[in-house]
Design a protein around this nucleic acid. Sequence first.
RNA 1: GCUCCCGUAGCUCAGUAGGAUAGAGCGACCGCCUCCUAAGCGGUAGGCCACAGGUUCGACUCCUGUCGGGAGCACCA
Length: 611
Amino acid sequence: MYDLKDNLKKAIEISLASLDIKELDIPIQEVPDNKPGDYGSAVAFGLAKTLRKNPALIAKEIVANLPKIAGIAKVETVGPYINFFVDSAEFIQNVVEQDASIAKNDKKVIIEHTSINPNKEAHVGHLRNISLGDAMSRIFRANGHEVEVQNYIDDTGRQAAESLFAIDYFNEEYDGSKKYDHWLGELYVRLQTAKEKDPETIEAGVSKIMFKLEHGQLRAEIEQVVKALLQSSYSLGVEYDLLVWESDIVSSGFLKQALEVLKKSDSVYTPKEGKYANALVMDVSKFLPGLEENEVVLVRSDGNAMYVAKDIGNQFWKVGLFKGIKYSEFETQPSQKTLYTTHSKGKDKITGHNFANGDIIINVIDTRQSHPQTIVRTALKMTEAAKASDFEQSHHLAYEVVTLEGQAISGRKGITVSIDEVIAEAVERARKVIAEKNPDLPAIDEIAKQVGIGALKFSMIKTEAKKIIDFRWEQALSLQGDSAPYIQYAHARAASILRAAKKEDIDYNKADWSKLGELELKLARVIAKLPEAIKMSARDLSPHILAQYGLELATTWNSYYNHKDENGKPDTRILLSEAGQKEARLLLVEKLKSTLAKSLYLLGIESPEQM
RNA sequence: GCUCCCGUAGCUCAGUAGGAUAGAGCGACCGCCUCCUAAGCGGUAGGCCACAGGUUCGACUCCUGUCGGGAGCACCA
């Protein structure tokens, strides 16, 4: 891997060593457009104080002692800054020819996302979860990790019970006229209104269903919802490795084991009196100071476990503390990859798979769950059986909610938009634009899907997770500006040039890198930043960094493509370039295209060759 | 009340572990296709980076406080 910044860092280190200085953190940054040079460093500032010397002078001394650096043509000081001038021919060639191989990382990553309550259809808020989770899993894979994607099925919850009960209560039967999750969701909403008139019957009925669910008796009914929900994920191009059922977590004894482990801690006890008398509580004050309520109820005084307790059991299992859950095949996903599930009647081990036992655990859940998620991590911290790394490597990727035209999503108030609905609309809009701009395009349907769905997912990923997204149709489905189609278009444009080049007889050995200049250098510099963008995205659990990178790369390329000289004449016509320059430019475009495609791929977005 | 998050152009957002003149998109206005896809490109207008202090050679970035906005804090999930 060609890493110029790293080379610059090392060179400065050598220079500093010869001056008898040890500075651990050497900043390297890109030079602003209006300043001389390509990369710069401000190390001298940091040394000014300890050396009691003018930073500009220090910079000069460092430059004087610099060794030769490959790919650097010139070094200059600009005041206290040390600026490097890249040898553009060498640099661009290096960027084009760098191999994209990644070092294996032996830390296994478990990413849980989607985890939609199996009682009604998914809405745009879930779309954010799915898009972020899927992007994260792709990014970690790109960083060399083994990644296991889990989708948690809360099959013992009240909401699932209410939906199932509603079927009996209204005496309805599924006739296949709409998607099952939508059909069930309507019954669920109907039941909420019916509760006002007939609370006793409904309460009693729901309790009965809940009891059955807890004992895993209505598995087939829940599976039907889960399968319908998975269809939405599949149409977004998202797949999973394992479904984890809450009822299996409980029946495998993980809840019980978790409580036993926790009881060994002084912070977990059963008060004899007070408001939590006879309940099992966990005092988190030692670990989370400053809270008003220090005690968290794990098991109610009636003996029923709270949701957090199950969640703790789940987390303990993920990090590898518990064993004994069983697995079976669930279904074959569109890519032909098998989706597995936990199942009480399954096998202890699936050949070729070692589920759970993660080194890094990432839970993609909305930010309203921050408190319970903190409790779960705290439980790991206070448990002797857990390693310190289990706590440190447990992360909550908290994302803010999605609102609709400024209003909170609420199924009951009818303020909601389902994922299936937005997908259909997005694809339809994309189809219209294609029909208008490029009517002769073959496979319009396929490309409309790629573009429409790409736009949707990108709109969920491009902003920071901690910011609220207000979903607006025109904005989310926009095909121009800061959008996936903008990047896809840049990609298709590059593809088009390469297609045309294929018809000619081109000898790429004739590429003359010295015939490339400032414009190509600019493009190459951005291409070279991809590995850094991937690393940062993973480090900060922030796919938006990669999304922003994709935009920057597409912008740079579009700008290059449309560039004109002082006379207003295009000066970057690749196919009309002179011999030597043409071949080098084509190779650069090829690299650009694959880099765009990779950025999109890591966000779970397709890169059409034409659009 | 306590805890956490947010506040950058009219609107929606970037700003890469403090660094050089704060950047995009949408909207407005002016330009660019006899030339590899105009879903594109160039330009103009638009900023006390909420406010006040502090740390620093240097703060949109770190700390404290204030003001706005959101969320969380139950023997619910």
